[in-house]
């Protein structure tokens, strides 16, 4: 993909994520996070008051970066990224990552993309933004 093919309004191919116990175990082992809300059901519901095992917020941030990086492939580099976890997600939830180009700046070859993770109710639980610099 080259910058001249990109324009504001383009909708990125969406991606669905269904994190399960094994994925959360691998993720928290990989980032060295032993917070019990990500693997200990009785503790999570009984002591922290969640309805189920909590999907890590930064993992949802990662899902948003995957959406934009898969879209540009080798043709652009990430120069900016932001996200905010507004509402918790739990194992068993199906999460959908979406993105749309909001701005193309030819002068610095940069593209702004608005991002969101939605839960099954359609609530935006993790909004975000990414900035990509195209090589050509």
């Amino acid at each position: 993909m080259v910058l001249s093919e990109v324009h504001a309004g383009i909708v990125l191919p969406e991606r669905t994520f269904r994190p399960d116990e094994v994925q959360l175990f691998m993720y928290n082992a990989a980032i060295w996070n032993s917070h019990r809300i990500h693997y200990d059901q009785p503790y999570t519901t009984g002591e922290e008051g969640h309805p189920g095992i909590v999907i890590d917020g930064p993992l949802q941030g990662d899902f948003l970066t995957q959406l934009v990086l898969e879209w540009v492939g080798e043709d652009a580099a990430l120069t900016g990224f932001e996200y905010s976890n507004r509402k918790a997600a739990y194992i068993g939830d199906t999460l959908v990552a979406r993105g749309q180009v909001t701005e193309v700046r030819e002068t610095d070859r940069e593209v702004e993309v608005e991002l969101a993770i939605l839960n099954e109710s359609g609530d935006v639980i993790t909004p975000g933004k990414a900035r990509m610099r195209f090589h050509q």
């Binding site: 691998m26 990989a30 970066t65 990086l69």
Partner: peptide, 27 residues
Amino acid sequence: CKYSVATGQRLQRFIEGDEAPPMFLFG
């Protein structure tokens, strides 16, 4: 490579560990 599998990366450069996905820095 561990991080890439754990997060479900699909780009070859991340799966093979030639480059880290950006959020790898979190851990």
